[in-house]
Computed example of a mutant assay.
Amino acid sequence: MIVITGASGQLGRLVIQQLLKKVAASHIVAAVRSPEKATDLAALGIEVRKADYNQPDTLDSAFVGAEKVLLISSSEVGQRLAQHKAVIEAAKRADVKLLAYTSVLRADTSPLALAAEHHETEIALAESGVPTVVLRNGWYHENYTMRIPGDLAHGVHLGSAGEGRISSAARADYAAAAVAVLTASEPQAGKTYELAGDTAFTLREFAAEVARQAGKPVVYTDLPEAEYKAALLNAGLPEAFAQLLANSDTATAQGALFDEGRQLSRLIGRATTPLSASVAEALQH
C-alpha cells in the first residue's frame, strides 16, 4: 500500500496519475485534507482518506496498512515543520517501511529563506528512525509559466534574479521522480536526490522565449529586492508571499536554483521537459 499525502494538490494528482501506470489503484491511498475535493480520484478506484497535517489522529487512520508514504511538503510556510513532524510521527507509529519527502534543492546549504523548514524537516526525518528518502526538488517551470498572461498583458516580466540561472523542470518531471523512488526495486532508504532540470535559463531568457512563442514583446526588468517586493504588493499579493517571492529571486541570483548534476533525468530515465515545451503548453491555455 502506497499513501500519497496532499494527493488533491497539483503535484499529488500528477504523482497518482503516473503511479497508476505502475501500481493497481487498489494499492494506492489518496490522503487529503478535504475528501470531498477528491471525488475524481475515488472514481479511479483509489481509496480516499482524510489526512490533515494539523490533526494527527486523521494521519493515524490515513496510514493504516501503509508500506510506503509520500510526504508532499505543506504549502503553509511557517507552519510546515510542526505539520511535517506530525506526519513523521504518524508514519513511525504505522511502522512505514519507506517515507519519501519532497524537500528543496540543496536544502542544507540553500540561501532560499524557505529552505530552512525543509532542512529542519530533513533533520527530524533523520532523527525519527523511519526509513527515509529525500527528494530535493528544484523549481517548477510552472512557477514562471503561470505568470505568462500577466507578462503578455504588460509586456514585461519583473524580478530580482539578475543573471542567476534556473535549472527548473516541469512539475510532471518531479512527479515521475517520486513514482520512480516509490516503485524502485532497489532500496531507497537513506538516499537524498538533488533534482533539477537538464538545462538552465535566466529570467531574461525566459522572457525572450515567451515573446518568441507568443509573437508579442516581453522584456525582463530586473529590480532590487525591495522594489520587486513593492511591485508584488502593489499587484495585490499578501506581504508574506511577496517577501518569499522577492527573497527567492535574490537567492536565484546567488545560484540557489542552478544545478547541473542531472540526477532528475537519470532517476526518471528520460530528459527533463524543456522550458520551451512548458511555455507552449501555457500559451495553449
Rank of each mutant, 00 (worst) to 15 (best):
V87M: 12
N143P: 05
H118I: 01
A169T: 13
V104Y: 00
K97V: 07
A180Q: 11
V181Y: 07
Q83H: 04
G190K: 07
L158K: 05
P131K: 13
I166N: 08
T121P: 04
R93N: 12
V156R: 12
L125N: 10
E89C: 01
G164I: 02
S168F: 13
A178L: 03
A126R: 15
T199D: 15
E186S: 14
V104G: 00
Y140T: 06
L195Q: 05
S103D: 00
P187F: 08
P131L: 12
E186G: 01
K191T: 13
A115R: 00
G150S: 13
P131D: 13
P111G: 05
A115S: 09
Y193F: 15
A153W: 08
V156W: 01
H84D: 09
D173M: 11
W139V: 13
V181W: 05
E122S: 03
A189H: 08
E127S: 14
L99K: 05
S160R: 03
A153T: 06
W139P: 12
A161Q: 00
M146R: 15
R106G: 00
S103C: 00
R165D: 05
A196K: 05
V179T: 10
L125H: 10
G159N: 09
V134H: 06
T183A: 07
A90R: 07
H141N: 12
A200F: 03
P149V: 08
Y174I: 07
I148T: 04
L152Y: 08
E122L: 03
A94M: 06
Q188R: 06
V181E: 06
L99G: 04
P149C: 09
P131W: 13
E122V: 03
G162E: 05
A196H: 07
T199W: 09
V104Q: 02
P149G: 09
D198L: 11
L99A: 04
P149Q: 11
G197A: 11
E194V: 02
I148E: 04
L114Q: 14
A189R: 10
P149S: 09
K97F: 04
L182P: 02
K92A: 13
K191I: 04
A113C: 01
L182N: 01
H157N: 11
I148Q: 02
T199N: 15
S168W: 14
L195C: 07
E142T: 05
T145E: 03
L98Q: 02
S110I: 00
G164F: 03
E127T: 12
T192L: 06
A124Y: 10
P187G: 08
S168C: 15
E186P: 01
T199L: 14
A172F: 07
A184E: 09
H157C: 08
A175C: 05
P187D: 11
E117W: 03
S160F: 01
E122Y: 02
S110N: 01
I166V: 14
R147F: 12
I88A: 08
G150I: 03
E163G: 05
E194L: 09
Y193M: 06
H118E: 02
P149A: 10
L99E: 03
D108V: 00
S110Y: 02
I123A: 09
I123V: 15
A184Q: 08
V130F: 10
K191A: 11
A153P: 05
E186K: 12
T102I: 00
R171M: 15
R147L: 14
